[in-house]
Write a protein that binds this DNA or RNA. Structure first.
Lengths: 342, 342
DNA sequence: TTGTAGGCGTTATCAC
DNA sequence: GTGATAACGCCTACAA
């Protein structure tokens, strides 16, 4: 059994309140006594029982991160940022893989989150009324990361997807591409796909490049789905010179398909991704992509959450994280006529 | 404020003991009463306060997973397996990124794990006396995943690294390779590098292929380090026909170097990895590698841990997870003379 | 500056 | 089958 506050008190010949004060308000204890107590604490290896303190003041020093799947490096990176702030605040992070599944979410909420948790970072799907209701019932600060709930004004941390997507598309256009196919995430996943589609479309239109539904194809945001989507896109647009995919995983899947078709990237077809996963620099050629500073998103979300935890009735301000085009090797500049094909 | 057991009791006109029983031993409560209570519980949305229960019976329903870095997909995969078992047991998983750093480990132990946690899965470095001492002080079940502590007989879940490495090397030899370079993990990281080196060496010797320190090069087990290690290896062994790297990340880094040197994989040089990260199938050509079923390692470690939690004085048996050679596109069979080079 | 005592919400033991 | 009660360990008025 671990030593309790009583053990310390007895050993140090003081009352338990003194011991408690040494922990929570050291200055209010006489120097000599404080040192005596500290000494005993050290000796016995005493640490306050967190259940007991939790019971009193209802804080667990634990926050929850709800993400679709930790195996997805996007979320691993984000979690890493969250964990970093948490560590600095001496908080723990509990991880929940929701698999974007309402039932699984409920299970977590029911059996875990209700258990007592000081805050929640949610980075799964976009927020529907269902989620909103559950959040409210939890009665703890909630911050969204890389998703959105403006309809219920939940604070969120994310990239400006419209603008980022606009920039990516413009980059392609500026490199002389006109026949630009777009591999979008699934249409049922509103955030961020509506925004990224909008940015793409807007850039095309602003630059007088024709666009239509013929230029786009929808798929889950995974490697395999990207591979398969590319085959559909290629069938629709045999003359495309560039592909812009709404995620790196899809972009790399698309590259695999292209490769198998004997199409070289970027000689025959240019490819642009979104996310800047570590992966994207590992492949050859490196993937040109839009960097989201994902770690920063996690960190920011963590910081926002702690603001909420430390000051419960403060309104949290959503924050936008900057994005950036990372130029590597998958986009060819068609304006340089050096080595032209098609 | 959340409703307490008293609120339910009052509302249902029973004593709190009855309410408690409805939760913990429903059969001991009369049917009629039970239903009345259940109804009120539902109405009020009552859930037992975990601090209070924790205070009584010293269980938090939380376990900890200590890994070097969640951004490393190897550990993300493992964590995912752990989380899955935990969920099924209605436990939560707290994640700790140790960065293989003793100080950081201590910080976690001091401020977090001591908080009360029912078990620990450790997957960071190999176990030194330092770690062992800290584990003992925690006084909770500990299971090692993908690392080893036989010196102190801590239960572990891992692949047979010697055999796996032996198999990988043999595969290369059977494909007609003799000049096989080995990129090892750092020598200060004993597990799993001693074992993988041993397997490599043994296979070479058993097949009468010459080996020496000239064939090996050491590096951190990352992409960048693999890239750099390959340059060293290539300098030492300009005639190598195959490279075997002790991790996929290193193998892919090595491939990048080779690619930049104008050496084609597998035409000029064959490459073999270890781990079978998802990454390894995404690149072109796909990486031939030794699959560890990492998810399974995590799951297994979780199950072992729960055995220990549910039965505190049971001796836990270490388990070995099967490995498998995954043949993709990076190893050329030199015995087929079809398209020979060098 | 230090000590005493009550209460946080639950569960298990005991008595009825 | 049901209810009262002690105990888990801590914190903080409040009293001294």
């Amino acid at each position: 059994m671990n030593p309790t506050i009583h053990d310390v008190a007895k050993q140090a010949n003081v009352s338990i309140s003194t011991v408690s004060r040494v922990f929570n308000n050291p200055d209010s204890v006489g120097k000599e006594m404080r040192e005596r107590v500290l000494q005993v604490i050290e000796e016995l290896g005493y640490a306050p029982n967190p259940f007991a303190s939790g019971l009193r003041d209802n804080r667990s020093m634990v926050i929850v991160a709800m993400i679709p799947d930790i195996r997805n490096s996007y979320y691993a990176e984000m979690l890493s940022g969250i964990e970093e702030v948490a560590l600095s605040k001496r908080y723990n992070v509990i991880i929940c893989n929701t698999i974007q599944n309402e039932e699984r979410f409920l299970e977590y909420v029911k059996y875990f989150v209700k258990k007592k948790v000081d805050g929640l970072i949610f980075a799964s799907t976009e927020i529907t009324e269902f989620y909103k209701k559950n959040f409210d019932a939890l009665n703890i600060p909630v911050v969204l990361a890389s998703t959105e709930g403006r309809a219920w004004d939940l604070p969120s941390v994310r990239v400006d997807d419209v603008q980022a997507s606009y920039d990516a598309t413009t980059f392609l256009i500026n490199n002389g591409h006109q026949e630009i196919g777009f591999i979008s995430g699934p249409s049922h996943l509103l955030v961020p796909n509506v925004q990224r589609y909008e940015g793409y479309r807007k850039a095309m239109q602003d630059h007088q490049v024709p666009v239509s539904e013929q230029h786009v194809v929808y798929a889950e945001m995974t490697f395999d789905a990207g591979y398969e989507a590319m085959s559909r896109l290629y069938a629709k647009m045999p003359h495309l010179t560039a592909v812009y995919a709404a995620s790196d995983a899809m972009a790399i899947g698309a590259m695999k398909f292209l490769h198998e078709q004997g199409l070289e990237v970027p000689r025959h077809v240019s490819v642009m991704g979104f996310d800047n996963l570590e992966l994207s620099r590992m492949i050859s050629p490196g993937l040109t992509t839009v960097a989201q500073n994902i770690y920063e998103i996690g960190k920011s979300a963590g910081e926002l959450l702690f603001q909420g935890i430390e000051n419960r009735d403060q309104d949290l301000q959503s924050v936008t994280i900057a994005h950036e085009i990372i130029v590597r090797g998958t986009v060819r500049n068609r304006r340089l006529k050096s080595d032209s094909e098609r």
